[in-house]
């Protein structure tokens, strides 16, 4: 059905122009990336769309050790880009293949995914595990941690230009588990774990759980259970237990909170086992 309330679509040619348009009437305007979420969920008050297609903020590229994914890059483009396939030892394509359907991935953008940050988002869970940062513009260009972006107070939310995956995680070991009712479904619960090892010792651990049904969060006590250890099965059990205890699991129509707690333990354990049993301890 048409989004009847939309009255006009602006097509700025520059980031500054886009931001100025957005500031003119923040209540009634929205940035338009792939448009999927706007078609589905545009509030009745939104009458102006600001199409970001003309800003040239698409494409996947390496910048030094960092992987930079332009905001307008579709999920399919991320999935197919050789640059993203290389990051975190091939972690991203495996995650993105589980997101929605190819039909939606061909339209939805990574910018849309991180700005909307649906509670069930697999993309957000996976990117937080890789310490993703958002390059944004709100009068000036700056960088936000994706994990903390939801705490950004300003209104409107800055214009996202790119997602940056720091090089430190380029060689991280990472794994992802998604539980859903069917294969083409949002997550009942998802979780992603990543870590780097130096001489077998675990550094920079991340344990992230999403769709709880709230949006993805790190679970610090679970991470602490692994920190500076050798990812032994005892560590893994401790992390899984801590994750299950700490996860903000609640009921919704897809599952009960209790079941989500169970899935959290299983998901975290399976991610860590996949990592532990993966490329070994040489990295």
């Amino acid at each position: 059905m048409a989004v009847h309330q939309i009255e006009k679509v602006l097509r700025p040619r520059s980031v500054e122009e886009a931001w100025r348009s957005r500031l003119e009437d923040p209540g009634s305007s929205r940035f338009l990336a792939g448009g999927v979420d706007l078609v589905l969920y545009a509030p009745p008050s939104v009458t102006t769309l600001i199409d970001l297609a003309g800003l040239g903020v698409g494409g996947v590229r390496r910048e030094g050790d960092d992987l930079v994914i332009g905001a307008m890059t579709t999920l399919t483009e991320v999935l197919e880009a050789p640059e993203s396939a290389a990051a975190a030892r091939g972690f991203l394509p495996g995650v993105f293949r589980q997101v929605a359907s190819p039909l939606q991935r061909n339209v939805a953008t990574i910018g849309g995914a991180v700005v909307r940050a649906h509670p069930w988002s697999d993309v957000v869970t996976a990117l937080i595990a890789l310490d993703a940062r958002l390059e944004v513009f709100d009068g000036r260009t700056r960088s936000l941690s994706l994990e903390l972006a939801r705490e950004e107070r300003g209104e409107p939310f800055p214009l996202v230009l790119a997602v940056r995956l720091p090089g430190a995680f380029g060689n991280a070991e990472a794994a992802f588990e998604k539980f859903s009712r069917t294969a083409f479904d949002v997550a009942v619960l998802n979780c992603a774990c990543s870590l780097r090892r130096e001489s077998g010792i675990c550094r920079d651990v991340r344990v992230v759980v999403g769709g709880t049904p709230a949006v993805a969060r790190r679970l610090p006590r679970a991470e602490a259970a692994l920190a500076a250890g050798r990812v032994t099965s005892a560590d893994i059990e401790a992390a899984a237990r801590a994750a299950a205890e700490d996860v903000d699991a609640r009921d919704d129509r897809r599952a009960t909170g209790e079941y989500r707690r169970t899935l959290t333990a299983v998901g975290v354990r399976r991610c860590l086992e996949a990592i532990g049993g993966g490329r070994g301890e040489s990295a």
Binding site: S101, T182, A183, F184, R253, R254
Partner: peptide, 16 residues
């Protein structure tokens, strides 16, 4: 009905 959509009433797709 709380799940009056194919988004939340899950019929099987080709991968299932």
């Amino acid at each position: 009905v709380r799940n009056a959509s194919l988004f939340d009433y899950k019929i099987l797709g080709a991968r299932d």
